[in-house]
Nucleic acid binder design. Structure first.
Lengths: 329, 329
DNA sequence: TTGTAAGCGTTATCAC
DNA sequence: GTGATAACGCTTACAA
């Protein structure tokens, strides 16, 4: 019988191995130690099932090997993929991930930050919508999709390039009259650039285009109304739609079909995000795919970068077009 | 200027407030203390932006307010919903969630367990496929969807009831010849009961039914072959299919359509899980909905239960049928 | 009631 | 290269 019932400590290992406490510590920190000692310690540790207590270690070393990820939610396919990839990227670096979801509530976002602050995490990766969010200067912070200030590194997809790409693809596929649809929050963010890129490409190619932007709380119905109003004699005024997100694209496609239009026959639709059925099957629609894995990897790399004196303030990662059945190939 | 550059400690607060260290501690632990003292402490803490260091606290109290969730991945819509709901349920109880993903790799699962063991989490919720998984007896553990032993509480949907419900719905909707399709792991788990329930209902109603079970690594193609072989003259040998998961249902529906059959016109299909488009839009198909929120809430409640002497070994939560366009209503 | 002091498990600094 | 010893920030008896 070992002492109490609690987990074995370094002291136990030291006693078991017949060495000093400090020696055990060195073994577990990769600090050179006599071969015979190391073996004795390792055997004793294995025998006792010893695990270093990372809290005690964190208390002393002021590093905990834990990073917090703050997300609006974990069920949205894009966020879910992000969480998954970030978790893996962190694991590769020997870190654990604390996940908090905010429900897009600014107060909850601030609470989450405070909560993880207590936990002495080594860093925070946040995808947030609180325009007044106070990020603690003491903890490394990386923002995804939202630029705060030069001091806070932001990692995002090349949203501008993605918007361009979408427009060019539609034109290349024969579309003559384009539509841009967007629905979302008022809080400015990198994704806003999708429209800019789209417009830039349209201008460059002198393509007719219309823009419709809605706020979250208005719901999808105004799009239906708009679409309905622009169909004359069964044929639409437009033949290509770029939607700000795959989710919107999906809704729009359903609306078009309900209105009797064929996709991609009458109208071609491209979304944004690269959402797949069940997370890993085919694309839900033709789309501009965000490089989720690179987004994750990059965020983690920047967050864990030792030299924080010279970090980029914005990194945009390349997107790619993927056919998903709602464009004519 | 405060001392170093590091975060303020209780000692700083005590000095600032002009009280003793112990008093500050009491204030932050809700232990009664003189009103005037409490105010002084609170003001000082606010002024300094003090946050209790939960690692130091955990070191002493042996409670960290952190729970680990071990999942095969975070991108599968069901797992993602689970992660989201468990995160919320934990937050409601003042706990944080450490998320680890294993890629369904048994070794990775064991590694995750060891990793979180180091972190002195207050408990572990696991959805795992390692049949030989060693769950540490010292840490409260709740298993989702897989029964280990009477000592390890398992929380699951009422899979048997769900299977029954699916069969009954199909029969009620006029199906005469039923099919059960399943694809998945060999590791036994609660979801296996979906078939048992389905068969029980078929027997009860004396309904013809066929069962096809595949292993993950065989892919979906055998289903296509099977379906193709059972269509004569454009009409199928069957008119109702219950698929083990919504994902399988989705693939089957695509196959049926490719084979020229109408869903739900010629064949009705019911899946299992309750997967929604983009996590919160409509159901992907008619389905037996798992009560994800209750699954999460229940797991957390059992995990955090103080009295661990008398825990249930298996809890099954009620499922519900939801129409999703692949059945005739 | 308030203040004091002894740890919790590690790491880091020294003498040996 | 090894082994005492003093922190790290907090909780908690216990003494004032």
């Amino acid at each position: 019988m070992k002492r109490k019932s609690s987990a074995p400590t370094m002291k136990d290992v030291a006693r078991e191995a017949g060495v000093a406490l400090g020696t055990v510590s060195k073994v577990f920190n990769g600090i050179p130690v006599g071969e015979s000692y190391r073996l004795r310690v390792e055997q004793a540790a294995a025998k006792l099932g010893y695990q270093v207590n990372s809290y005690a270690r964190g208390l002393k070393a002021n590093k905990t090997g834990t990073v917090a990820l703050i997300l609006p939610n974990a069920y949205d396919p894009f966020f879910a993929a992000l969480a998954d990839n970030i978790c893996q990227a962190l694991a590769r670096r020997g870190c654990r991930m604390l996940l908090t979801v905010t429900g897009s509530d600014p107060d909850a976002e601030q609470r989450c930050i405070r909560m993880v602050e207590q936990n002495k995490v080594d860093g925070i990766i946040g995808l947030t919508y609180n325009p007044a969010l106070e990020v603690p200067a003491a903890i490394p912070f990386v923002s995804i999709d939202r630029y705060f200030s030069p001091a806070v590194p932001c990692v995002a997809s090349d949203n501008f390039g993605g918007g361009q790409l979408a427009a060019e693809k539609l034109l290349e596929l024969g579309c003559k009259k384009l539509l841009f649809f967007r629905i979302g929050t008022d809080v400015p963010g990198e994704p806003d650039k999708r429209l800019s890129g789209f417009q830039a490409a349209c201008q460059l190619h002198q393509a007719e285009h219309t823009v419709l932007i809605l706020n979250d709380r208005e719901g999808f119905e105004p799009f239906r109304t708009f679409l309905g109003e622009h169909i004359r004699g069964g044929k639409p005024d437009f033949d290509g739609i770029f939607c700000n997100t795959d989710r919107l694209a999906h809704h729009v496609i359903c609306m078009l079909q309900e209105l009797g239009l064929a996709v991609p026959g009458d109208v071609q639709v491209i979304g944004f995000d690269g959402v797949r059925y069940f997370g890993y099957d085919g694309y839900v629609c033709s789309t501009i795919v965000q490089p989720v894995a690179q987004l994750a990897e990059t965020s983690v790399n920047i967050l864990l970068e030792e030299d924080r004196s010279n970090l980029p303030s914005l990194i945009c990662l390349p997107v790619a077009y993927a056919a998903g059945g709602t464009t004519r190939e």
